[in-house]
């Protein structure tokens, strides 16, 4: 590859991919089994997604704006999943049940879809850049 690599794009690519992989890792497994879904993975996915969203602030290009939108959707979904988890494990008298777990994981799976779209957009942008 010739020329200077755009560091901003590399950093963003890193965070978008990390968000998607963490999100995917958390969602994989039986939907209502708390032992198969590590809360730290959810936590890391939330943090990384928020950072990926921030990295798209102030991008005036069309594709940058869409990436901001998808990252924002994923962040909101993951934060909601975390809130449900907090409700289940700390507030609800019955503790973290399979029901709670199922809704946490399904909301996180929704976020995963948004993260996939982000990754696809990233790939599209990279490919069109190479062609130029």
């Amino acid at each position: 590859m010739v020329g200077v690599v755009n560091r901003e794009k590399v950093v963003f690519g890193f965070f978008v991919l990390l968000a998607a992989t963490l999100n995917f890792g958390y969602v994989v497994g039986d939907i209502d089994n708390p032992r198969l879904h590590n809360v730290y993975e959810l936590y890391a996915a939330v943090a990384v997604n928020i950072i990926a969203t921030i990295l798209k602030f102030g991008d005036r290009t069309q594709i940058g704006a869409v990436q901001l939108a998808t990252s924002l959707v994923a962040s909101i979904q993951l934060i909601i999943a975390a809130l449900v988890w907090i409700w289940g494990s700390h507030v609800d008298a019955g503790g973290l049940t399979g029901e709670h777990m199922a809704s946490v994981v399904s909301i996180a799976a929704g976020a995963l879809l948004a993260n996939f779209v982000s990754v696809i957009l990233l790939i599209m942008e990279t490919v069109s850049y190479r062609r130029r």
Partner: peptide, 26 residues
């Protein structure tokens, strides 16, 4: 545009803040 200028410039400070909070919580 002034708004875009602000948003671009708050990126790094925000990422630093989020990272500090995330690492410390973890």
């Amino acid at each position: 545009d002034a708004v875009f200028l602000i948003l671009r410039r708050v990126r790094t400070p925000l990422v630093v803040l989020v990272s500090v909070f995330a690492v410390m919580t973890f």
